[in-house]
Design a binder for these strands. Structure first.
Lengths: 189, 189, 189, 189
DNA sequence: TATGAATGAGGGTTCATTCAT
DNA sequence: GATGAATGAACCCTCATTCAT
């Protein structure tokens, strides 16, 4: 019963994803979202009780996907293969990283939000785990100087992945280049 | 003579800078800016006809400063010293880089804005010039493989500089680490 | 077995009554009403074309009941018994009186409404009839000074009945007290 | 400096008073209020940060005035004069009583509201004090049976004052009639 | 000149009502 | 015949901007 839906929850998240990437958190409005979905603003409130909860749920979902994706890495590979594997997966998560950074700016309009923000924060650590694991492995196997600060290396990798592909390289080449930069920087051997 | 101005253009830009770093582009409001200047909102409109133009001009000004700062590098130094010099200067411009990234999100509310955005975009290239020059030098002197794509290397350096200092390293150490990462990546020599 | 029974007009009025007492006219929403009936909002529109008409009809119905109840008084009783009888009946109509007071605030969204509001207004006079009759009787029998204004006495009785029972007296005692106040006011004999 | 005000705080309260009497709490909207003041909705927010605070402040002010007015009664008068005095004062406060009844329905949108609601509640008791005092005096002087419940008598007086003057009696006569009804009810002496 | 006052557009949200299955 | 989905108007509130002193 009831008439056909004009948009599914999946559509909603898809549009949310696009919009948040385009406008950022502060520029994200229900009007724009509704327009993207060709739907009235009110219709969105049938799915989510308010903007904050919509965004938080969206982020949690994305985060869950990210954590899963990164945790599925085969840890038995060689260091270099594992790095390559990781990079490829992180590429799929590209704007996600950006999106998740916005989580902290979501206002605590209800206890539900506060709670979900904490969940999100906790998942952030899970997200780092495989990377940390890889760095540790690199240190153990002599690829990385054990004296180096893990936070710094983590930040370095995250930042490097976000290099914009202004040169328009094919994805494969681009990833290979990124990997080379991460491993050896700009210097000639 | 007229009465004393309550705030100078310099004050205005100072306040704008602080506010934009604190709140981001979308969180930037004329109310907050006026409050920071201890001035009425209306007063700001004596200087600038609207928020967009104020921000664009602010960015152009910052950009001009950045271009100047980077162009003052001593090009006669060795590659490594020049890199270090450059990094230190880029560190001074840190939140600037972030600020300039917002330029594209400024709405084209008038042709003046559109035009100034183009000016800004053009200056972006000037900004890259010293970096590009450095890379070229590196290639000539055999530090960098000449086959490598300049855009990529540029992006790499910009991104690496933006690594957040979560580990809380002292600035000097931090810059040295950044330089090492740029030059050699995470690998052990 | 069969499906759940849908709601009857009686259910509708029952729920309307409860809801309007709980929330008042302005707080009355179709959502709340539908929830009380365990039915979709749309279902209610099968019975009534809009909120106003529903409420007006509800009020007319209640009014009809009230008129009937008050007109069934035995007019052959003594003045005092008749007063007591009347009071007891008016007590049964307590929240009704309150409800009917809201009628004037219903918006004239359609001519039908306007018309029914007039009907309601006319019935108001019928409602007063037994009371008026009683007052007249009281005047004839010397209980009430014939010079007194009937409207005033009517208003007095209506208001007195609406005294809130903050003291928490048992109903019987409460009615007796009300009657005493109506007859003799606060003065000691 | 700045241009002339289109409306003063006094105008605001005047309009608030009228509107709340006309529409009740739930029907009270900022749009209607702004319209009554021939002003934009936004302008009102220069005076009060939100609807609730406006209404609560309005009520507190009215309550303060009421408490003052009632507490200025000369307690040395005879019981009957004091009653008359009180009634006349309560007549001035007529719709106020109705207004204050709405206080409890104001939503607690901020701690400020919650606090002011408590203040209001406390003042309510102050408001009753002179009436209570009068009743006690009446009991002591033999005008009122000491066995009678004070709450009931209070309620009775409040309700009686709210009798609508449908008969259109001149105020003086009307008050005299009210007093007579309070003292002796409808019965002939 | 700088200001306080006012405004209109737009943001989030709710609600009566309509639509289409 | 009842439902879930969708809508538009209206609500409260904020913000960039203009007005008039």
């Amino acid at each position: 019963m009831g008439r056909d839906k004009k948009f599914s929850t999946h559509d909603l998240w898809q549009a949310t994803h696009e919009l948040i990437v385009e406008t950022g958190y502060q520029g994200f409005t229900m009007s724009l979202l509704a327009a993207k979905l060709h739907v009235s603003r009110a219709a969105i409130y049938k799915h989510y009780p308010n903007k904050e909860e919509l965004l938080i749920d969206f982020m949690v979902e994305k985060m869950r996907y990210s954590v899963t994706l990164l945790s599925e890495i085969d840890f038995t590979q060689s260091f270099e293969h594992q790095l390559r594997d990781l990079l490829e997966r992180m590429f799929q998560l590209k704007d996600l990283h950006q999106i998740l950074g916005m989580a902290s700016t979501i206002e605590d309009v209800s206890p539900v939000i506060t709670e979900k923000k904490q969940v999100l924060s906790a998942m952030h650590h899970e997200l780092y785990a495989p990377l940390n694991q890889l760095i540790t492995k690199g240190k153990e196997q002599g690829f990385i100087d054990p004296a180096r600060n893990n936070f710094l290396l983590l930040g370095f990798i995250f930042q490097t992945i976000d290099i914009p592909n202004h040169a328009g390289l094919p994805l494969d080449t681009f990833i290979a280049e990124i990997q080379a930069l991460i491993l050896h920087g700009i210097s000639n051997k």
